[in-house]
Simulated scan of single mutants.
Amino acid sequence: MYDTILVPTDGSDAAMNAVDHAVDLARQYDATLHVLAVVDPTSFSTLDVDPSTVVVAMERQAREAAQRVETVAEEAGVAIETAVVRGDPARTITTYATDNEADLVVMGTHGRSGLDRYLLGSVTERVVRTADVPVLTVRYEE
């Protein structure tokens, strides 16, 4: 049923909760798990800081988040591919899913987006509305 499962991560607890589900599904279906961490350079545009410094820090955090998922997947014996890319998170996730022929996207219902989530709509909501493949949303209870 599933050969390629995409799990986007921002390193949040909600994203890691979704990882558990994605790893379990990948193990059950002998699927390859794709881990995607998206760095959104526009998310800090209202701050008075050096953009290059912030992007470098964001990319480091994204690589660390992807590495945590990679560790969980490897411990479960799941084949994994990771990517850290820049872009609009929702658009990048759906494009990545299409380009890599994902059969399923597994995402947490909440991430690190804070106020932006309420003003612009959550990344998960936008992926659910625009993805060409099924999106499994995993609710996170704090």
Rank of each mutant, 00 (worst) to 15 (best):
A66S: 08
T32Y: 02
V55R: 10
P41W: 08
A79K: 15
A14G: 12
L136T: 13
R129L: 10
T98G: 10
R63M: 09
V78N: 01
E75M: 07
N17P: 02
G87C: 00
A66R: 03
D99H: 02
T109S: 02
A73D: 11
V85K: 02
T94N: 05
V106R: 00
E141W: 10
Y140S: 13
E81T: 10
E59M: 12
V105G: 04
D132E: 14
A14L: 06
A37T: 11
A83C: 08
T98H: 08
F44R: 00
V85T: 11
D50T: 04
P8E: 06
A76H: 11
R126K: 11
V19E: 08
Q28D: 14
I93G: 02
F44K: 01
A62N: 14
V78L: 02
Y29I: 01
A15G: 07
T137S: 12
L33K: 07
L36N: 01
T137V: 14
V39C: 04
S43V: 06
V39S: 03
A79M: 08
P41Y: 04
T137E: 12
E75R: 11
T92N: 01
V35L: 06
V84F: 02
G11E: 00
R129T: 09
H110D: 02
V19Y: 01
G111L: 10
D88T: 15
I80H: 00
P51K: 04
D24F: 15
L47E: 15
L119N: 11
E101Q: 14
L47D: 06
T53K: 13
E142A: 15
T71C: 08
L47T: 10
V84R: 01
D88W: 00
R86Q: 12
L136G: 12
A15M: 08
V72F: 00
V69F: 13
E74A: 15
S43P: 08
A57S: 15
R86I: 11
T42P: 01
I5H: 04
E125Q: 14
V39T: 10
T137D: 11
A14P: 03
T4Y: 07
T9I: 00
Y2W: 10
A102Q: 06
D24E: 04
E142G: 12
V135E: 06
P134M: 10
V84P: 05
S52E: 14
T46Y: 14
R86E: 14
V56F: 06
E74I: 04
A65F: 03
L104S: 05
V55Q: 11
S113R: 13
A14I: 05
R91W: 00
R27A: 09
V106P: 01
T92V: 09
D24Y: 07
P89H: 05
M107E: 02
A37P: 02
V128H: 02
G114N: 04
V54R: 12
V39P: 00
V19R: 00
A57C: 13
F44E: 05
Q61T: 14
T82L: 09
D10A: 01
A22D: 10
R60Y: 07
R63I: 08
T94R: 03
T95A: 09
A26H: 02
Y2Q: 11
P89D: 13
E64K: 05
P134K: 09
E141D: 13
E141V: 13
P41K: 09
V23G: 00
E74D: 12
T53V: 15
